[in-house]
C-alpha cells in the first residue's frame, strides 16, 4: 500500500501532513474556521487550537433589493472540537 513512504496515496494523507499547521475549514451553515490542526479521525472530527470562526450572514432584505450584502461575524476560540458531519472541506496552509 505504502509506495513512497511519506507521499500522498489517499485523500486523508493531505490532512495528516497538515497536523500542527494552520488549516482552513469550511463548514455547513456558512461557517469557516482557521486554526491549528491537532487531531482528526475518519469521520473528520477535528481538534483545533487558536481558532477564528467566520460566520457569513446574508442580509435577506437588502438581497431582495438586489444588493447582496453579506454581514460577517467573527469570534475566536482557544481550543475547539469540531464534529465531522458539519465539515465540508479542509484545506492545508498555502505554501507560498
Amino acid at each position: 500500500m505504502d509506495v513512497s513512504g511519506t507521499g500522498i496515496q489517499e485523500p486523508f494523507d493531505l490532512i495528516r501532513l497538515s497536523l500542527s499547521e494552520r488549516v482552513f475549514v469550511k463548514l455547513r451553515g456558512d461557517r469557516e474556521l482557521s486554526g491549528i490542526l491537532h487531531a482528526y479521525d475518519g469521520h473528520m472530527n477535528l481538534i483545533m487550537s487558536d481558532v477564528e470562526e467566520t460566520i457569513m450572514i446574508v442580509d435577506t432584505e437588502s438581497a431582495m433589493a438586489g444588493q447582496g450584502v453579506v454581514n460577517v461575524a467573527k469570534r475566536k476560540m482557544e481550543m475547539l472540537f469540531v464534529r465531522g458531519d458539519s465539515v465540508i472541506l479542509v484545506s492545508p496552509p498555502s505554501r507560498t
Binding site: L19, L27, H38, A39, I47, M77, E78, M79, L80, V82
Partner: peptide, 21 residues
C-alpha cells in the same frame, strides 16, 4: 453537536498529534 470548546490547558497538543499519526 457542532462544536465543543475545550479547556486548552488540559489538552496536550503534541500527544494528540502523535496519537493521530
Amino acid at each position: 453537536v457542532r462544536y465543543v470548546q475545550l479547556p486548552a490547558e488540559h489538552v496536550d497538543t503534541q500527544l494528540l498529534e502523535d496519537a493521530t499519526r
